[in-house]
């Protein structure tokens, strides 16, 4: 105890120390904030306890700053969900307490098992699973520019694939925004 105090006086925090800063310097502000947060939580728990004794529900509160970490927008899966990887395969199911060995669909992220494919889809689309992935349940709002460049890149891909010749006058018609539909000339896919 006394040695700790003596090390503090020798200037761990102060600028006076000339020794190389191999010791981790603590961020006082961060610690103060953490202490305040802890105190707040304890006070909340206490008041909830008191309300419980009176037969009341805990007070609704704004989410604590802890849970308000920036989360990513929800993302669509780019690959198809594989639901039939183990179809027609016999697996030995032992009575076990290890979640991953139990029958059903196992989610590695959440370490849980769901009993069938629909429930598995519900699970991976669900809040708990998405939160475990660091995603919010909010979807990003696309901008018109994103949409336009998406369409442009799809078109480029398509043209590259088919290597079709576009006559110059047809190209100018295409650039004219007012010329909406053309009479079924580009009816290529059905």
């Amino acid at each position: 105890m006394s040695s700790a105090r003596s090390s503090r006086t020798s200037g761990v925090y102060g600028a006076s120390t000339s020794a190389p800063q191999f010791r981790r310097t603590w961020d006082r502000d961060e610690y103060a904030a953490k202490a305040r947060e802890r105190a707040r939580r304890e006070a909340q728990a206490e008041s909830d306890e008191e309300r419980k004794r009176k037969g009341l529900k805990p007070k609704p509160r704004a989410p604590s700053p802890d849970s308000a970490q920036p989360k990513e927008f929800l993302r669509a899966r780019s690959e198809k969900v594989v639901l039939d990887a183990n179809l027609n395969r016999t697996q030995v199911v032992q009575s076990t307490s290890i979640t991953s060995k139990q029958p059903g669909y196992y989610c590695q992220v959440c370490d849980c098992v769901v009993k069938d494919s629909v429930n598995y889809l519900d699970h991976i689309n669900g809040k708990k699973h998405q939160r475990a992935l660091g995603m919010s349940m909010k979807v990003e709002r696309s901008t018109i520019d994103q949409v336009r460049s998406k369409l442009a890149s799809l078109k480029a891909k398509k043209e590259q694939a088919s290597e079709t010749y576009v006559s110059p006058d047809l190209a100018t018609v295409k650039n004219n925004q007012d010329m909406l539909p053309k009479n079924g000339q580009s009816d290529t896919q059905m």
């Binding site: 993302r75 669509a76 899966r77 198809k80 889809l121 689309n125 990003e140 696309s142 949409v147 998406k150």
Partner: peptide
């Protein structure tokens, strides 16, 4: 809906 529409944006 569950398989192909989850998380879509106007772009996707």
């Amino acid at each position: 809906w569950k398989e192909s529409c989850f998380g879509l944006t106007a772009e996707t």
